[in-house]
Design a protein around this nucleic acid. Sequence first.
DNA 1: TTGAGGTTTCATAAATTTGTGAAAGATGAA
DNA 2: TTCATCTTTCACAAATTTATGAAACCTCAA
Lengths: 169, 169
Amino acid sequence: MKTIELNAASEARERLVELGGRTAQDLGLGRIAGQLLAYLYFQPAECSLDQIEQDLGLSKAAVSTAARQLEAFGLIRQVWKRGDRRNYYRTADNLGVAMQQGLMALVRSKLEAAGAEMDEIRSLIDEARRAERDASDLAFLHDRLKRANTLRERLAALLNSRIVKYLVR
Amino acid sequence: MKTIELNAASEARERLVELGGRTAQDLGLGRIAGQLLAYLYFQPAECSLDQIEQDLGLSKAAVSTAARQLEAFGLIRQVWKRGDRRNYYRTADNLGVAMQQGLMALVRSKLEAAGAEMDEIRSLIDEARRAERDASDLAFLHDRLKRANTLRERLAALLNSRIVKYLVR
DNA sequence: TTGAGGTTTCATAAATTTGTGAAAGATGAA
DNA sequence: TTCATCTTTCACAAATTTATGAAACCTCAA
């Protein structure tokens, strides 16, 4: 009987780890980071690097790098054990919140960067328009840029809206 | 005077194309597709493949591939001109809507795929739990999986919410 | 039907990303 | 301080992605 339980649990863990890896890959977080996060999330106790390394079949280097990446994002945290030199890791207590906030912050910063660049380009165009009487091409560019910016602003507004904050909490 | 206008316009276009490329890269759409889309969006008339190829400094092959990719997503469309064998392209009429719907659909399908896989794993666990009396590890996995699924469901609900549909319209 | 003008496919080159082993760098017990 | 143990860094190998040129493949006017 014991074997059945162990097999189901470990098969489930393996598949969840793989799913985490794929998802993280999609999000541009890197496969290993995703696998590590899923691994820890579905592990009942904190784990040492070498245990992780062995279970996931990865090199120490890869695990170490991914761990520090996840830690920087606030998704996992270290656990110190007295009398033990190893680093143990577990998922952050507020994992759900951290994930969502992190993702939102990432999207928001990209939107902002794009917005800043668009503003720059717009002022370039406006300046040229003032210096030039018949600048219909510039007027066209100006109009298109304005439309694109509207899109961007709507998206930003959505991210900041109260309902998103509520739903995503 | 004419030169000032031309310079400003072409510098603006160049920067917008680059911005489009970077953004698309981030979204996993591919740099060239993004450049092409931005190029067409900021072009007042439809363009032929060889004109695009020349302006963007890319090979015919790359442009051709990206164009069909964008067309498949409904972001650009072909324009036929009688007595001209070339393919001309322009951005879709409803570009904003198409972009948003496409992005939403993409996210939604990923969420669904992940959800389906999680369901499978959950039933694997449930089955094992029925066969095993003291399955505390399985109970733990079950609980975690449930929590993860709640997150996923919230996100899906958000995507389907009326306010998102409104804001993103 | 032919062939000129245009597009797409495909093998491969180039660039980028990812993962590793080995060595250097920490850390803490004795 | 020293030693044993663990972690991190780094140069490089492997894999993946991206872009190209050339050839195959369309399409239409004559």
